[in-house]
Nucleic acid binder design. Structure first.
Length: 305
DNA sequence: AGCCAGGCAAGTG
DNA sequence: CACTTGCATGGC
């Protein structure tokens, strides 16, 4: 039952025309589906690059089972991966390696602020994560610091997710809607979910009972999808925007949280409409088709200067 | 000790 | 519609 671990490399674009920066992308606070794989640095001992790991959902892995995928970037033009299947297409999809960053940059307004952000964070990409873990992560995100959201995701996986052995270690898949729907609210509160516990439990139950409808959320107009997402308990405008951007391919989505509110006020005061929702609409209109990429660069740069 | 953290929902005017 | 408040918990 233990398949052999495969290894592979992926050439990634690099330079001023296009680029991919794995660490920047994973550690920017946009994805809660990847973690640093601290225990396995020796496997890439020819470099000091960090290794990151995810457990692919049964529904997204070609083997039909939860699968560990480990990725590192030993040089700017190369990714190396390990998994028990050919993980290349999954990695390309998860990190949007087919997006043409230069074209995206050129499609955005050419203002000096964005120009500076693109220079200093070049290679950052918007991740493309699976729907359910992203939905739950951002329901958990309200009034939480980013490191704590990671902790909650990890705790949920260890408590309710499938255990997956890989390379002598144990990893945990994020729970499926079925697995999480069975979690009583009081247990979720024990994991320090606080007031988010009933939101997580009820949302898991709803997704579990309507997997088919959930799968259509990416094929609607932005507005329709946004409206549907807000029907989940614990999902408002901001969480809906995050799920749309990070899991449903709506690259025009521009989530506005407390950070973005102050970033907008600092760099784009003319876009401030007094409320997060209205400011998000204004930003979406100003930045256009790839507003989400602009948001990503602005958000990632938030502590850099 | 008090305030804030990638908000949301329910209640008020 | 716009605005306020309660909601858990942890870190500084």
């Amino acid at each position: 039952m233990t398949n052999k671990i495969q290894k592979g490399t992926i050439s990634v674009p690099c330079g001023t025309g296009d680029a991919f920066d794995l660490s920047r992308t994973v550690e920017s606070g946009q994805t809660f589906c990847w973690q640093q794989d601290e225990g396995n640095k020796e496997l890439f001992d020819d470099s000091e690059a960090s290794t990151y790991v995810t457990v692919a959902q049964r529904t997204e892995s070609p083997t039909g089972q939860a699968e560990v995928v480990r990725v590192s970037q030993p040089s700017e033009d190369q990714l190396t991966w390990e998994a028990k299947f050919d993980a290349e297409s999954l990695i390309e999809r998860r990190f949007r390696l087919d997006d043409d960053l230069e074209e995206i940059k050129n499609s955005l307004p050419s203002d000096p602020v964005l120009e500076k952000m693109f220079q200093s964070e070049w290679g950052l990409r918007v991740p493309n994560d699976p729907f359910f873990p992203t939905l739950i992560a951002f329901i958990c995100s309200s009034a939480k610091a980013i490191p704590h959201i990671h902790t909650l995701q990890k705790d949920l996986a260890e408590r309710y997710g499938e255990t997956v052995g890989f390379d002598g270690n144990e990893y945990y898949a994020f729970p499926t809607p079925t697995e999480l729907a069975d979690a009583p609210e009081h247990e979720l509160r024990e994991l320090s979910l606080g007031f988010r516990a009933p939101y997580v439990q009820e949302t898991a139950e709803i997704v579990n009972g309507n997997e088919e409808e959930s799968s259509t959320l990416a094929s609607l107009s932005y507005e329709q999808s946004h409206k549907k997402l807000k029907e989940f308990p614990g999902v408002g405008d901001k969480v809906a925007d995050c799920v749309q951007l990070y899991a449903l391919d709506y690259l025009n989505s521009f989530p506005v949280d407390t950070w973005m509110e102050s970033i907008i006020e600092e760099h784009y005061p003319e876009l401030n409409r007094g409320s997060k929702e209205a400011t998000a609409d204004a930003a979406c209109e100003y930045f256009g088709e790839y507003a989400g990429y602009a948001q990503s660069y602005l958000f990632t740069h938030r502590n850099a200067g």
